[in-house]
Amino acid sequence: MSKLVIKPAEERLRERIKELTCMYEVTSIIVNCDYDQMEYALKGIMRCLQKAWKHNKDAHVELITDQYTLRTIGFPDQSVALKSSIEVFNKKVGNIQVVYPTKSYAKSDFLLEEKKLLKTICLEVGNLLERKQIKDNEDLIKRKMEHADRLSILGEITAGMAHELNTPLANILGFSELLKTRITNDPQANRDLDKIINSAIFSREVVKKLMFFACEMPQQMDVVDIVPIVSDAFNLMQPSLKGKKIDGKLSFSKEGIFLKVDAIQLTQVIFNLMLNAIYFAPLKSVLNIMITENENNVEVAIKDQGPGIDAEIINKIFQPFYSTKPIGEGAGLGLSVVHGIVKSHKGSIKYLPNKPKGAIFVVQFPK
């Protein structure tokens, strides 16, 4: 029985059909791609490439980008490769290579048509990644706009709430203090009035934070030496530090640090960050406040030794009314107020984990 010999023309035609089939399948994958299932689509493209090669049973594909590292099953340790780059917005972000195992193949086993095909597929993958990046950017902008819109509405609501609450709170506080002066022989009534007065004062502070958040309190920006401002705020917090036997340490990089700020709002930032740190810090721990002047900014770093913040809620801590404290112990406005004040000063605030445990809040004010 004679052996079947495939003529060169037939072989080239068969390879050409495989290449065209690969291009058709890859195009179908890209057209129907779900951007949330990008890895699945890329794996499909790799399988199409694998089938298109002359020795497809021994061919393997590797796709590497700045976001993905994918290989076909059984990828050889030693291989000869045909490689082409992936570009996104004219920037190289990775490559695709098709390989044969070294023990059975050489570089010459790759066809010129396969090199052209690989280059074309890399171009298509780059276009796909570009479209995904554009969509991701559009989604991010949309979320930011929705968030800004919600904050704007929330600011209007909170401003109205603050104005509405101020009058009844002032009445409660005033009449309670007046009533206390009239009652002199009833200790229990005096204790009850003290509770009413303290609750009214607490509520007034919440209203003040609401007004800060809603930007209802006008800024008075002046170039001032922040060393005495921060020192005064730190000293006012000494009773709270002593109450938990916390060793508070305040340091400055130099004696006079001048910055254009609203002094009252800077005090509010220090108060809120210290109150948070003291609340979460364990007994007999250390709380460090470091003020450092650099060439372009002034940095305020507050470090505590508390439990720190879980990674899954870091993005929420500056949102208004979000609190990790038990109900009744926090309004969830402290960090959002700080965030608003810092942003209004064109500064930045970020959270870092303390080592070995605790939280660090770093505020930077531009000079």
Results as ranks from 00 to 15, higher is better:
Ile246Cys: 04
Asp247Gln: 11
Asp247Val: 02
Gly248Leu: 00
Ser251Thr: 15
Phe252Gly: 08
Phe252Met: 06
Phe252Asn: 05
Phe252Ile: 08
Ser253Ala: 09
Ser253Cys: 07
Ser253Leu: 03
Ser253Asn: 08
Glu255Gln: 11
Glu255Lys: 14
Ile257Ala: 09
Phe258Thr: 15
Phe258Ser: 14
Leu259Thr: 13
Leu259Glu: 11
Leu259Tyr: 11
Val261Lys: 00
Ile264Trp: 06
Leu266Ser: 07
Gln268Arg: 01
Gln268Val: 13
Val269Lys: 03
Ile270Arg: 01
Phe271Leu: 10
Phe271Val: 13
Phe271Ile: 11
Asn272Phe: 02
Asn272Cys: 10
Asn272Asp: 15
Asn272Lys: 00
Leu273Glu: 02
Leu273Ala: 03
Met274Gln: 14
Leu275Ile: 09
Ile278Asn: 09
Tyr279Phe: 15
Phe280Thr: 11
Phe280Asn: 11
Phe280Arg: 10
Phe280Lys: 07
Leu283Thr: 13
Leu283Ile: 06
Leu283His: 10
Ser285His: 08
Ser285Glu: 10
Ile289Asp: 01
Ile289Phe: 04
Ile289Pro: 03
Met290Val: 14
Thr292Asn: 09
Glu293Tyr: 05
Glu293Trp: 05
Glu293Arg: 09
Asn294Tyr: 13
Glu299Trp: 00
Glu299Thr: 15
Glu299Asp: 13
Ala301His: 01
Ile302Trp: 04
Ile302Val: 15
Lys303His: 12
Gln305Thr: 12
Gln305Asn: 14
Gly306Cys: 07
Gly306Ser: 07
Pro307Asp: 12
Gly308Glu: 08
Asp310Ser: 14
Ala311Gly: 04
Ile313Thr: 15
Ile313Pro: 13
Ile314His: 08
Lys316Met: 10
Lys316Thr: 09
Ile317Tyr: 07
Gln319Tyr: 05
Gln319Trp: 00
Tyr322His: 13
Ser323Arg: 01
Ser323Met: 00
Thr324Leu: 09
Thr324Ser: 10
Thr324Ile: 12
Thr324Cys: 04
Ile327Arg: 06
Ile327Leu: 12
Ile327Cys: 05
Ile327Glu: 15
Gly328Asp: 11
Gly328Ala: 05
Glu329Lys: 09
Gly330Tyr: 03
Gly332Pro: 12
Gly332Lys: 00
Leu333Val: 12
Leu333Trp: 04
Gly334Ser: 14
Gly334Cys: 06
Gly334Pro: 05
Ser336Glu: 05
Ser336Met: 01
Val338Leu: 04
Gly340Val: 02
Ile341Ala: 02
Val342Asn: 03
Lys343Cys: 05
Lys343Asp: 07
Ser344Glu: 06
Ser344His: 04
His345Leu: 04
His345Gln: 11
His345Met: 09
His345Arg: 00
Ser348Met: 04
Ser348Asn: 11
Ser348Gly: 08
Lys350Cys: 12
Lys350Gln: 14
Lys350Gly: 10
Leu352Cys: 10
Leu352Met: 13
Pro353Leu: 00
Pro353Lys: 06
Asn354Leu: 00
Asn354Cys: 06
Asn354Arg: 00
Lys355Phe: 11
Lys355His: 11
